[in-house]
Amino acid sequence: MTRNGDSAVRLVGARKAYGDVVAVDGVDLEIEADEFFTMLGPSGSGKTTCLRLIAGFERPDGGRVELAGRDVTGLPPHERDVNTVFQDYALFPHMSVGENVAYGLKVKRIGGDERRRRVAEALAMVRLTGYEDRRPAQLSGGQRQRVALARALVNRPRVLLLDEPLGALDLKLRQQMQQELRTLQQEVRITFVYVTHDQEEALTMSDRLAVFNDGRIEQVGEPAEVYEHPVNEFVAGFVGVSNIVEREGRRFTIRPEKVRILDDVDASDGLRVEGGQIRDVAYIGAVTRYIVDLDGGGEIQVVRQNLEMSSQEALEQRGRRVRVGWRGEHAYAIPGSQQQPEEEL
């Protein structure tokens, strides 16, 4: 992280406001070369604006944008060595697929055989060989998305920016495209900067991710690190479902899949055990989700695989008194919460 000049993208104190609304509020960020970096956050958290600052569609009110160590803050998009895959794909409707993909090469005056070869390569890479003469309107959503990808990659940019590219696709296709994007990124060895509000997508695909909230970055780190050690309640709640339990003035987060409902016969060695009552049960096919009111105060969500339990049995658990237990190391104290109770005391 400290190898200066080596980072593919660097934001220094980037700030952008629209009227009274501060979309990006002093963001510092370093993205390494060749990494798959995700900007995750709810809508309106400033992640897309950050992407647009990197691409050059927006000019920051303050701060700097650097690409490969070079200050590009004052450069228009067409002079930046990045390409973007847009949320709505932004394919030119008056051009064929081939013309769309060739556009970047054409305006850079790369002509003849080289252009034809690179367009064919790019279309082959996204498995759309033979679609050159179709119009974007004749393609399905998934195919359009692939054309947008080919149109960006054909320019061999140093950095590829992707703005919620899978948002408009249905679940099956989205999961398939997640795989493909990840494989593609490893093949082409280009830095991917990926914007999404889908935490699962962020966790599956990224080398590292940044969690955005309210124009600021709350946490940057590898997926496992962010998931297991969220720095504050926002991150804990946004990345995965999280239980927040307050004990002895400290707040802990425990992931629902780490909590067990203990039957009388179960051993409870090494577990922290509390009593409670099941308030609600939701059967979700592969798993069942229980909400347990804890006797010690607060509630806890428990997710349990339906190994032997039928839906009927699961639903009948409602109202039952239970013991829940978890390992001490899975209850992670939220760092930020330590100061707050102290201040109040």
Partner: peptide, 26 residues
């Protein structure tokens, strides 16, 4: 859509080229 104009610039087209190849035809 504004994204078409953004996309043209993003793909390396200066303003005049974007006007001639994207905005004017549409």
């Amino acid at each position: 859509p504004n994204s078409l104009i953004d996309a043209s610039g993003d793909l390396g087209a200066p303003t005049w080229t974007t006007f001639r190849r994207v905005i004017l035809p549409l």
